[in-house]
Design a protein around this nucleic acid. Structure first.
Lengths: 196, 196
DNA sequence: AACACTATTGGCGATGTGTCAATAACATGC
DNA sequence: GCATGTTATTGACACATCGCCAATAGTGTT
């Protein structure tokens, strides 16, 4: 029995990448720590040693999956509201289509929604996205809880629409773009003022 | 050891009601078949005998939770689009607030989304709701797949917004109503025409 | 080459699940 | 009331998965 010894960081990274692949392709319950260990060529105990419990490992996976390159969000869109809406929607669609499988797997709660900690991680990512949307439409300064809630709702719409596009395949990117930008403009003009 | 013998229908119903209560208050993984059996005053094997596997039981629970009284959907809203939107939104908010705990638990906050069969059950319920929305806005006759997809997205928005309202408590019913009806009007006028 | 450090292993105990033959309620007939 | 058949119900067995930890063995150092 030939074992190989790695630096903790390297081993941890390797196991994590295997876990990301598995949790991204199968729901939570269908992935056993034994599967992760076998695919990583490692004893099962080592998975627990590095990540604690199975749910802890899954939380790490979801965190990575939802970590989005915040690039290009720096350059705030210019112009009137419709142009800004177009920009932020394009950015969102680019990001979500590039990381489609993992990102949708995570937001769809790839296996265990309802768990408090998992929900918290997802909610955090949604909150970040919502903050980006708010900044893009020029309402990012000290938003009220209600306004943030409305924006989270819009992010929910975006997620669902992306699923109809990328997973069900019943919508084209063009249709998705029109839907999301018109909805955003309407919500900003009519609903958001109720929450300031 | 005194056992009591019930008619299969009655016993099944009793176990199911216990399961609904438990799955409605705790996530899937935190409810064991032992819990269900104990609360029902029954041997664990009997749960499997009536419902098969644990996931089968959960599917039954979700089905019941998502079964919504289709009442008052018969009386299609009259008037122009804004009035119709107001009506359908009011109806939706009434239903969802009346069955808030169980309904929100099922739609994604409380169960095990990600599993194929569970997703299918939820998708079916969303599809029914989407069909109702389409009829309410007068586009219910033979809708295209794209149009149905867009409407499912809108239902997703409604679900997320209801969560912000009922679970997070950051929105008032009035705010939710305005948000959902303006979004619906905008989508029907601008996005839906792209899908006919 | 001997040593120390620690990454890594393998097995133990606990928990949860599905299955199935054995059991005992309850209804029916005498 | 008593025997009998039907079947709802039980209890236990086999199996899988998980968390934990003492024992083991790579790997760099002296």
């Amino acid at each position: 029995m030939r074992r190989r010894r790695l630096e903790p960081d390297a081993r941890r990274e390797q196991i994590l990448s295997v876990a990301i692949r598995l949790f991204g392709s199968k729901p939570y319950a269908d992935v056993s720590t034994t599967d992760v260990a076998r695919d990583a060529g490692v004893a099962r105990g080592l998975v627990n040693h590095y990540f604690g419990t199975k749910k802890d490992l899954y939380l790490e996976v979801v965190r990575v999956m939802l970590t989005v390159p915040e690039v290009a969000l720096e350059q705030l869109p210019e112009g009137e509201l419709p142009e800004r809406a177009d920009s932020i929607v394009s950015w969102f669609l680019d990001v979500v289509s590039r990381h489609s499988t993992s990102w949708l797997a995570a937001t769809g709660a790839g296996g265990m929604a309802g768990d408090a900690e998992v929900n918290a991680v997802i909610a955090e990512a949604v909150d970040v996205a919502a903050a980006g949307v708010l900044r893009a439409v020029g309402m990012g300064d000290d938003p009220s809880p209600a306004l943030r809630g409305m924006t989270r709702s819009y992010v929910g719409l975006a997620i669902w629409t992306a699923q109809e596009w990328l997973q069900r395949g019943v919508l084209t990117r063009e249709q998705v773009h029109v839907l999301l930008s018109t909805a955003l403009v309407a919500m900003v003009e009519r609903a958001f003022p109720q929450a300031v």
